[in-house]
């Protein structure tokens, strides 16, 4: 394990809302769990987010959205990832997302996992590690 490169994560704030408490807490927790974390800062367009994800060569892209624009932004980011041959980047997210919308986003493959308020950061760490392991073993 020690020779393997660290898991690389981009934490991104697409859209216009400025609520970055959750994104920053998650970014720190992932860093504390030994991952390489890059944070985009606020008010990013989907294009900027995907460009950063590719440039930073990340394994995981986490979107934090609290403005209600999740049904627009997740599909757009997914679409751009695929257009840029980066569809293998795990796309996850969190924020204020109603149950129904979460199911739809996951069903349609716009997000592989969504973490809502109150979920311990450990659960996110664990999910990422498991997903990365199954990705490496299946590759």
């Amino acid at each position: 394990m020690s020779k393997e490169r660290k898991i690389r994560v981009l934490v991104a704030k697409p859209g216009l809302d400025g609520h970055d408490r959750g994104a920053k807490v998650v970014a720190r927790a992932l860093r504390d769990a030994g991952m390489e974390v890059v944070y985009t800062g606020l008010h990013q367009t989907p294009e900027q987010v995907v460009e950063a994800a590719i440039q930073e060569d990340v394994d995981v892209l986490g979107l934090s959205i609290l403005s209600g624009a999740h049904m627009t932004l997740f599909p757009r980011v997914k679409e751009l990832l695929e257009e840029n041959n980066a569809g293998d980047i795990l796309l996850i997210g969190g924020g204020i997302i109603p149950e129904e919308d979460m199911e739809e986003l996951k069903e349609k493959g716009y997000a592989q996992a969504l973490f809502t308020p109150g979920i311990p950061t450990d659960e996110i760490v664990e999910w990422i590690r498991n997903a990365m392991e199954s990705k490496t073993s299946s590759a």
């Binding site: 216009l16 809302d17 008010h43 403005s67 209600g68 624009a69 627009t72």
Partner: peptide
């Protein structure tokens, strides 16, 4: 809503998906 707060009209590309949401 967020576009109003950030100074974008509702038909601006940056407003897509955000109009009237919060």
């Amino acid at each position: 809503d967020m576009p109003t707060i950030m100074g974008y009209d509702s038909d601006h590309p940056r407003s897509v998906g955000e109009v009237g949401r919060c």
